[in-house]
Design a protein around this nucleic acid. Structure first.
Lengths: 247, 247
DNA sequence: TCTCGTCTATAACCTGCGTTATGAATCTCT
DNA sequence: AGAGATTCATAACGCAGGTTATAGACGAGA
């Protein structure tokens, strides 16, 4: 999974082909891939902001450790995602990032990002769009934490993963691998691990979701989407015309 | 309250004076002020994205109306804030915006924003920093919704308002005017109005917060800050050096 | 193959917060 | 100034979800 695959397919690619230089700029972000093992902390909260990362294989998450001993997971990163944009512009990390399972990441520098932005307005627009879309996903999560019950939160979470994984070809027959533990899911949804388990049982009994260890199948994605009133405009990006003319 | 006051004081002003042209560009955003009355909807969810607004007087909030009949307030806007940046890059509004009390707003167009960004990298940086800071505030709210109890959420909410109001000179002797109803506070914090009332009583009994209708006094801001482990790096912006050299 | 650690399922119990209700205080409009 | 609409405080009650406990299933390493 390269950025070229994900960014181009997600946004820009739809609106116009990239030049050779732009492709090179993107590929340059991925010159230094390295393995990362499950549980590895890429950086801690409050660390200096020096690097960003492209996730090439594996899943990662950003999180905050709280004074009361609990953790809040802010976002789950899948292959093709860029990690660290949250801290763009800040001197210190606002959140830690750790790997969920074994994977491959490609770190790149502020410097490289600035160069890319300076050289290609089209890529700059794509990067900004990425940041904005991430903010939109965060907003959606916030709404669910504030106003929805456990089974709706979990259904929404699973359905969002399903859509994101489908875009990168990681869904087969409505099923996908999900390396998150129930404790981690709880930390993302503001629930206890026990209640996540209870809620999975509930969704199973209702014939919506089947799960066997790390494999999840959405038996009826449409029904799930209706249950959570899923609005996918924030994932299936709809950039404004004005934005494109900015190039 | 003009953008010049708020943006310059918040970010850029610390790092270098603005040129005459930059001041003009900023003031141009505020050429068309108009009155807006309490409860007025500036735009609905899903409306076309055409305008942004500077809040000159009064408070506003962005919100989502949910299928289950409830509402989630995403952000409260104070004088000097820019409304609508959330939707920058999208064709449709992701959230509605309404006035909390009577005020004055200055709408400006995409066009004007693009022109400003094109003409002044310094202002572009300032705008981006604003967006990033708003995302950070949203993240903080998310953490509180996920992992903290009602009295901590309310204390955090009040303390954040206190800091933001202090920056624009709207705090006197640790007290400030707060035009939000308890129902609206509940919609922001994911609580029922009844429980907001109970929680206010609790904070009063503990000697932390006194409230008389729309006037709030934080009797001991330090104690409140400790209670919520307030981390103000996301409000007192600390832009990275790399970011500044980008100009 | 056995052992130890991690993950999951389910039960029992408890509490924080939602819901509903009621009355008082305050605001708005005429 | 009076009437109706909001807003707020407090109480009573119920439930969703937290906490603790236990036992089975699975995976990694020797």
């Amino acid at each position: 999974m390269t950025l070229l695959d994900s960014i181009v397919m997600q946004g820009l690619g739809r609106h116009g082909a990239l030049t050779a230089e732009e492709k090179t700029l993107l590929l340059n972000l991925e010159l230094n891939p390295r393995r990362a093992i499950a549980g590895e902390v890429l950086w801690q909260e409050s660390a200096d902001v020096d690097l960003f990362c492209v996730v090439k294989e594996g899943w990662a998450y950003s999180y905050r450790n709280l004074g009361n001993g609990s953790m809040q997971i802010l976002k789950v990163y899948l292959p093709g995602d860029i990690i660290g944009m949250r801290d763009f512009g800040f001197a210190r990390r606002l959140a830690g990032v750790a790997m969920i399972n074994d994977g491959v990441i490609s770190p790149f520098t502020h410097q490289q990002l600035f160069e890319l932005i300076g050289r290609s307005p089209a890529l700059a627009a794509s990067i900004i769009a990425t940041v904005v879309r991430q903010q939109a996903m965060l907003t959606e999560r916030l709404v669910y934490l504030g106003r929805y019950a456990a089974h709706e939160r979990l259904a929404h979470f699973l359905y969002e993963l399903y859509l994101r994984l489908k875009r990168i070809g990681a869904v087969a027959e409505n099923g996908f691998q999900m390396p998150l533990s129930q404790e981690q899911i709880g930390d993302a949804l503001g629930l206890s691990a026990v209640h996540v388990s209870r809620t999975f049982s509930m969704l199973r009994d209702e014939g919506l979701v089947v799960r066997d260890r790390q494999h999840v199948v959405l038996l009826d994605p449409q029904a799930l989407a209706r249950l959570v009133e899923f609005n996918d405009t924030y994932i299936d990006e709809t950039l404004s015309p004005a934005f494109h003319s900015f190039h």
